[in-house]
Design a protein around this nucleic acid. Structure first.
Lengths: 205, 205
DNA sequence: TGACAAAACGAACGTTCGTGCTTATTTTCA
DNA sequence: TGAAAATAAGCACGAACGTTCGTTTTGTCA
């Protein structure tokens, strides 16, 4: 009981720290100090640093899903939901859900060069996320909201790219307009794909 | 003389290593071992790890300019050069100029959360690069190759985003088609901006 | 309340980190 | 060729790393 609560608060802090310093830069001693507890006590919860990293990724994924994905699912499927997902992602950056920017963008670029279970876990999370975007695109096609010829994988690639670009410009370059630019890029791209015959519905936007 | 040669070979290796392990994961002991020299001997060349990191960024920038930017400058200014820059960048990923993928993408996401001179150096390099893309776009406008209404900053943002997305998909997800997708995304985007009155020139592509 | 389990602690392990010093070996050039 | 200068190595340092240990504190429940 108590242990689970502690574990959760450790992971909460670990996620924040890792978004700033990286999953490798995340350090058990530093984390313990931050939480006012002993290294050994903290360590016992995970058994190894690698296990801590994996648990941190899981915790980050949970926060991400709660803050980005689930809220967007409330919007009706099809074009509206696809756009809601994009807006939700950009809002998640603006709200600083992770203090160091997108946890998964950072982790992706940190681990893309080294093999191991941590890299695999990051890749799996990202696969799921990009897959979710693809699915939303496919739904928009199925609903007849966007053209049937749309290549879902291609479009998901482009949208995800814009997310990375937005995170980069916002976090590193401090470009306040980065999120506006990303919004415009995605809106323009998606708007061009809307079904002509459904133009009467565009006013809903 | 000799020192300069050694320094260069150290930096060559440092760049490779940092592209894989990150600039913070880059370690003096590991680097010295790799090169078959002593930590202290290597250390003397730089005086501090931070100085080594800064020199590594410079060396990476030099390699990047030589491998990506300068070759593209041989192409005539305007639309052709803009496209050449994009193709050159994608080729640079395909050729594994840095063993861990784009050095600057990795460094950007590694340091976007922490202040300091290293972060500033990374940001400066990226500013220059994005600025170079912007300039190429502006030239294409001036040459009358693309529409005068194009927002150079916006377009540069989008192109750079695609680069990040391509690096991500190629390096972490091992998606061989990532570079094709990036090419298509950029081609389609740019093609739509070409001046109608100059359509007779489009065959040149 | 008392007994047992869970959780946290403090100290220490061996290793590696970045960084100083001092000494030895090369390079360079008058 | 030999002296001066540049370069590399050797050694040691304090701190931090992940990890293990035995002990103590805290929580849970019969």
């Amino acid at each position: 009981m108590k242990g689970e609560r502690t574990r959760q608060s450790i992971l909460d802090r670990a996620v924040d720290l890792a978004s700033l310093e990286g999953l490798e830069g995340l350090t058990i001693g530093r984390l313990a100090d931050d939480l006012g507890m002993s290294k050994s006590g903290l360590f016992a919860h995970f058994g190894s640093k690698e296990e801590l990293q994996l648990a941190t990724i899981d915790a980050a994924a949970e926060r991400f899903v709660n803050e980005v994905f689930l809220p967007a699912l409330k919007t009706e499927r099809g074009y509206p939901r696809l756009m809601a997902i994009c807006r939700s992602w950009l809002s998640y950056i603006r709200r600083n859900v992770f203090p160091g920017g997108c946890f998964f963008a950072a982790a992706s670029f940190e681990f893309d060069g080294r093999p191991g279970v941590v890299r695999d876990a990051v890749a799996k999370s990202m696969d799921e996320w990009v897959g979710a975007i693809e699915k939303a695109i496919t739904m928009a096609k199925d609903e007849g909201h966007i053209e049937r010829t749309v290549d879902a994988k291609q479009l998901a690639f482009e949208i995800n790219s814009i997310f990375f670009g937005a995170n980069f410009a916002y976090q590193l370059r401090g470009d306040k307009r980065a999120l506006d630019r990303a919004t415009k890029a995605i809106e323009d791209r998606l708007e061009a794909l809307r079904m002509k015959s459904r133009r009467r519905l565009t006013a809903v936007r």
